[in-house]
Structures are given as C-alpha cells and as structure tokens.
Amino acid sequence: MSQKTSAPLSRRQFITGAAAAVASVTVAPGVFLMRPAEAGTAEGVRWGLLIDSNRCGDCNACVTACHEENGVRGMDRPRTDAQWIRKVELRDPETGYSHSLPVMCQHCEHPPCEDVCPTGASFRRADGIVLVNKHTCIGCRYCMMACPYKARSFIHETLTDQAAHAPRGKGTVESCTLCVHRIDRGERTTACVEACHEQGNGAMIFGDLNDPDSAISRELAEHGGTAIRADLGLNPGVRYQGI
C-alpha cells in the first residue's frame, strides 16, 4: 500500500497536479479575500463595538494601537494623513461638561458609503464588517462625501512599508476594518479594544451583537447604548454609552 502511494508520479499526473496547484494558489487568495474565513465568522454573527465614553480617558492608546497594527503612518501632513480612528473631544456649552470618545468606521447595517459606491468596492460582509475592496476602488471619494461619521481617509501619496494584512494603495479610500485580519484568524478582539484594556480603562468591548450571551450584548441589555446620528437609521455596529 505504502509502496503504491510513494510510487513516482507519471508525467500526466505530475502535470495535472502542478496545474491544480498553480490554479489553487492563483485563485485561492481571491476567493478567501472576499469570503470570511471559516475560523472568522459563523453564520448569523454581527461584530460590533461598545464604547463607554465615561470610562474613556485622556489617552490616545486606541488610536496608537490601531495605526500601529494596520501600518497607518502619517507623513506629517495633518490635512491629508489617514486616520482610521480618532479621539473626539466633546463639550456641552450649556453645562461645560466635557468628555471624549474614539470615532472610527461605525460599520453600519445600511452603510451610505456602500450605497453610493459606483463600483461596489465599498461593501458589507455578512458578519457586519464594512470594508473597501482595494482592487475595485477607483478613488472617486463619493463614499467620503456620503459617510456621516467622517470615518474614511483617502490615500494622498505613495506609501511604503505597509502591513501585509492591511494593503493600502495611493489613490484609494480606506477606513477601520474592525481588525478583520484578526477576526478571520479566529481572534476575538481588535487592536483598539486590546489597547484600551491594557491601559486599564476598559472603555471598549468587542463582540457579537447578535449573540444575547456575548459581553457586548449583555452590557447593552443592562445599561443601554446609543448610536451616533441614530436619526439617520443606519443601525451602526458601533454603540456608545455616555454621549
């Protein structure tokens, strides 16, 4: 038996096998890029974040961690540098009460960016993550006009030294991916959430909004949460407390 299987391959077998190998190497990345990997997402999942602005401190840990993780480096040009996540300071002029919170792509259920994108490059995965297909984005920036959260950045110049899991190309639009590369590896946290925990703030929770037993769902059920610009009816996957 073992002798049989280890017998040298016939020329036909070799050519067929080689062709199949080449085909799978060529096609597989495309297939898996567009489809959440099995490890990443079970059916019916909706990934989301809950951010408690009362616990959000003065630090910038989530921003630094995100940009470190995804290779988002500035060119010291604040107006054109990309920001996947930013800390927004809020102040109530009536009472003087101030607080801050991080804002990133809100991963809407009905994303305006996806609606307006002419080529369908802006898309929403079955698990709720809104992404830009870097192969079909033509750089028209209509999604940036449409996004109510100013969550997207356009790449204004040539970039080098990118992270392998977060390709970024000049002339295309990008935004927070909810660390999709981690999720597809089976991890269950994002760089920003991890950094917030390490910092001791614990202001951010990542999880499955559709699973009533997940930490994020339990917290939302117990203490509630709101969406930024809830009036638009976009049902974002990022929720806030204390706005």
């Binding site: 996806e114 609606d115 307006v116 994108c117 002419p118 080529t119 369908g120 490059a121 192969h135 079909t136 984005c137 033509i138 750089g139 028209c140 920036r141 209509y142 356009f154 790449i155 190309g169 000049k170 002339g171 295309t172 639009v173």
Partner: peptide
C-alpha cells in the same frame, strides 16, 4: 481626477445600481 484613473475599465465593468454615480455613467 479619480484616485485611480487607470481603473476606468473597472468603473465600466463593475456596477452598483444603488449608486447614483453608477447610474450617471
């Protein structure tokens, strides 16, 4: 003025019909 004018062919072959931009093409 597109970020990727070289991808004009993409705009001509990939359509999202909910986009008024695609309609305008």
């Amino acid at each position: 003025d597109l970020g990727r004018p070289d991808r004009l062919v993409v705009a001509m072959t990939h359509y999202n019909f909910k986009s008024i931009f695609a309609w305008n093409i």
